[in-house]
Write a protein that binds this DNA or RNA. Sequence first.
DNA 1: TAGATTGTTAATCGATTAACAATC
DNA 2: TAGATTGTTAATCGATTAACAATC
Lengths: 213, 213
Amino acid sequence: MEEKEISQAVVQRLPRYFRYLDELRNNGVERISSQELSELMKVTASQIRQDLNNFGGFGQQGYGYNVDFLYHEIGKILGLDKKHHFIIIGAGNLGRALGNYIKFERRGFIFSGIFDQDEKLVGSFVRGLPVRPMEELERFVRENDIDIAVLTIPKAGAAEVAERLVGSGIKAIWNFAHVDLNVPDGIQVENVHLSDSLMRLSYNINHYSQEKT
Amino acid sequence: MEEKEISQAVVQRLPRYFRYLDELRNNGVERISSQELSELMKVTASQIRQDLNNFGGFGQQGYGYNVDFLYHEIGKILGLDKKHHFIIIGAGNLGRALGNYIKFERRGFIFSGIFDQDEKLVGSFVRGLPVRPMEELERFVRENDIDIAVLTIPKAGAAEVAERLVGSGIKAIWNFAHVDLNVPDGIQVENVHLSDSLMRLSYNINHYSQEKT
DNA sequence: TAGATTGTTAATCGATTAACAATC
DNA sequence: TAGATTGTTAATCGATTAACAATC
């Protein structure tokens, strides 16, 4: 499918370029050089040019890059020109918060369903959608062309649910459970381990903070 | 303050070691070799030994590592033996979800306050704590020895709030706003850009998913 | 055209892996 | 002691930065 393997270090940075270009564009900036963008983003101009040239020559010598054009190109590279349907497994606080997050829709991510094993939650609504019982999971995924499952359940149940999702043909899992999932090749997993993130913050506080006098 | 600069690549991995050691320990495993751990975590044994030796010799030749001892040592390195008080700025869905997240307490992160600029939210409660108006921010941070501010507000207000936090002597910001913050050296920032994460997932779906036949 | 800035090759830097002597 | 496995040095690999020819 792909001509060249792009390193995940580059993929990691793409959304950040997208974010800055969106901002520039909203501010009516028409063109930008790698030098100017590098100052804004605090990275090297070299890195910007290298990163972009993984996907093609989007700039023009002597001119720089057209902001709007580059914005749309990166959007396409990220697959944001396509719609992605997602469901949320786990209607707890975090699951409901993500379901209510309307900004995802603007990037083509469509909130299509939410599930929970707790009978007391089943039937309640999150942004207009009913919380469904876990028994309906496989069928729902198949019949509604779901691409992404958002896992906001305790780690104990995560492995089993992941397996069921893979069995129903899900393409990707956005994993908020505090455990690493084991899925077959070709199924994409993106982890958001919040407590790992908080621990890193703790490390940096304890090792790099200026002591107050 | 520090003897040696530890690369952020290593810091990034520390919480994951901590997570696996916790698991092993809960399963009653007493000792483990870098080889065994490497198979479990799917990294090289070399990397594990290199990473750990940044902080000292925790193992013993011919034996391996004592799980419980290593767990506690990494905990100390991460600063989890100390208490950290945090406040949440932004009592929307995400802010409230994080406030209700009791697991953080187990690692020494104490939910100490929550703020919002919306008058309608002020006075409502999140896990027993009242939502406070933004005017009280600086004073509260100073008087309650707050280390960490969790930013769950729209990007428009983020820069201003960050500045106020820095002015009140906050040590660290856990940033969920979709914008990069500009803070002085010595103030730690850990970003959780959820939409960036979702876009990476989208990229990988579109570039690496097995096509279904 | 001359000046600016890209696209791309080459050089450097840092992180990962391999290897092995030290040692429990 | 012999076997196992660490701690650590050396080799490799990949990512970042610098440099510059191509070209708008």
